[in-house]
């Protein structure tokens, strides 16, 4: 492998991390909850997307239905599990969320079985050459999705009424409410968007690996946690940069650090080094 291959692979990974981590950082920015169960929602997206594709035969249709359905699931999840404990001390939501995540993985195991399931006819598997690097179509789709979805989100946040309401709530919820913003609505939309992005990431990971297992949410989700801390909890731009940086660092790390650390631990090594130097993350909250 040469450097441009490693760089491109790293950026693709980084886009997947970004899709997962942006949702997490949105939830944190709004509610101050470390939403560990986000990983469970990611896995749900993978299962639903894969099963729907196998059922309907159309990956594109399955993709759209899945991200919308999982988005609504995320809203219901917030309403049922988080809303009632919002006013308790911060560790309450954190631990409840860990419990939910562990339980979700087990429920997937009970429903779908512990063994992996695959696409009947894996879509987007052809390779094409982009700027001298051979890439699977699926990887290119990941990059396009990340750019479109996160770019769309940025437009939504910057240009629309709901985006303004959202930003106002993030910066001062009580003040926003006194200006007549419906906080509950902002939070629902927030969970819809976060969960839909996680589902999109889940389907794409399922596609690239061509398998879905109950525990697939674990590793990328823990890394996403490291990423949002690096990005300065709640800071979307910082999160994006941290996600791409981590993808690239890991990709090079597997070559140079492999004898010391396993690939999945690199994120945390990077995280701990950064936090010891800058406890507020690479990019502090604005």
């Amino acid at each position: 492998m040469n450097y441009s291959d490693l760089l491109v692979q790293g950026l693709v990974e980084g886009c997947i991390y970004a899709l997962i981590a942006v949702g997490l950082t949105l939830v944190y920015g709004l509610l101050r909850i470390l939403h560990i169960a986000h990983a469970g929602i990611f896995t749900l997206g993978a299962y639903v997307g894969l099963l729907l594709t196998n059922e309907t035969g159309s990956f594109a249709a399955a993709f759209v239905i899945t991200i919308v359905a999982v988005g609504f699931f995320g809203m219901a999840f917030y309403r049922l599990f988080y809303e009632p404990i919002l006013n308790k001390p911060p560790h309450v939501a954190l631990i409840a969320s860990i419990g939910l995540f562990v339980a979700m993985e087990e429920i997937y195991r009970l429903i779908f079985g512990a063994t992996s399931i695959s696409f009947l006819a894996p879509p987007l598997k052809d390779t094409v050459e982009v700027a001298g690097v051979r890439l699977e179509e699926g990887r290119i789709v990941v990059v396009i999705l990340a750019v479109v979805l996160i770019g769309g989100l940025a437009l939504l946040a910057g240009r629309t009424r709901i985006g303004i309401a959202w930003r106002a709530t993030v910066s001062d919820a009580a003040m926003a409410e006194s200006f007549g913003i419906d906080l509950a609505r902002v939070r629902y939309i927030n969970f819809f968007v976060a969960s839909a992005l996680a589902a999109a990431a889940g389907i794409m990971v399922a596609l690239l690996l061509n398998q879905v297992i109950p525990t697939m949410g674990g590793v990328p989700a823990y890394k996403a946690l490291a990423i949002i801390v690096l990005g300065g909890l709640g800071n979307v731009k910082g999160t994006l940069i941290a996600a791409l940086a981590l993808g690239v660092i890991e990709s090079f790390g597997t070559i140079y650090l492999d004898r010391v650390l396993d690939r999945d631990a690199i994120a945390f090594a990077f995280l701990i080094v950064v936090l010891m130097i800058r406890p507020q993350g690479l990019f502090a909250r604005r």
Partner: peptide, 27 residues
């Protein structure tokens, strides 16, 4: 680390320590 970072940051850092341990031992 607990002197440098607090609350949620510390939770993630200690989680990271756990992953560093398993990641290191595996290799």
């Amino acid at each position: 680390a607990s002197l440098r970072v607090r609350h949620d940051f510390l939770a993630i850092t200690t989680m990271g320590v756990g992953f560093l341990f398993t990641g290191f031992v595996r290799q």
